[in-house]
Amino acid sequence: MHHFSVRIGAISYRVGSAWAAPIASLRRLYADYPVPEDGIATVTARIGPPRPWRRWIRPQVEIGGDHTLPDTVPMALRHALLAAEMAMNMQVALGERRHLLIHASAVERGGRAVIMPGDSGSGKSTLAALLGENGWRLLADEFVMIDMANDMVLPFPRAISLKNSAIPEMERRIADPARFGPLLRQTPKGELRHLRPNPEAIARMDEPARPALILFPSFGLDPAAEGMHKSELFVSLTEGSTNYIALGQTAFEALVRMVEDIPAARFTYPDSETGMAIVEQFAAEMGI
């Protein structure tokens, strides 16, 4: 088994692969990340052939690890990096029991965080990636972790998966080619390329931020914004959380505090520039 270990915020991973190449790609993508605390990875993700001969003959990749879902569809070996990333995500989505997970991206400025929940296709990852290169610190692109003891956002700055049109957009803005993974074509999600967050996001991964604003982006329509009822916000946040139910009363109380204390709104945006401008406008109103 080829493997490597890495710490991303609160999560210390051991990632294993039946093939050497995906591990080499991961090492490049996660260069400069710290190693697990005390050298002990507590979460295992792995990729391997669904049947032994699939390692060599028309190789297929199955995602696995400590926590798995039945009936995940095997992928082509050329998409192994994506499979490894999915395996790493799956461990957090299914296994995290310490911090409340919100399906969202998040960025920080001046110690205050903007949380952007949204389904895939809402553009939340791309917006966070863009803001992360424009005066904000990227905290998370997919899973926002809330420390329920103090309601702070804990950074989880894993590699961002850029999809389709977001790829050339980020390539134009980021000069350092070493921050990009290989371009993966014809994946189940279309074209895909991973982006390592900038050095500041990695260096400050242990520095939490106080959530100050929750914005639900949706992509592709005329620019508009509207407020949200607290009840609607509560439901949206629980629906997007994979561990809300398992965390019981503690999570209930944390979410009640969030919906009472943090202003929230929805907005639609036709392009990235407008999206960023809308976030900046909201942030300015909040004095962020």
Binding site: E37, D38, I40, R97
Partner: peptide
């Protein structure tokens, strides 16, 4: 080790 203790605490939760 602290990290192990935390992982086990989560398993108990």
């Amino acid at each position: 080790p602290d990290v192990v203790a935390r992982a086990l605490e989560d398993a108990r939760a």
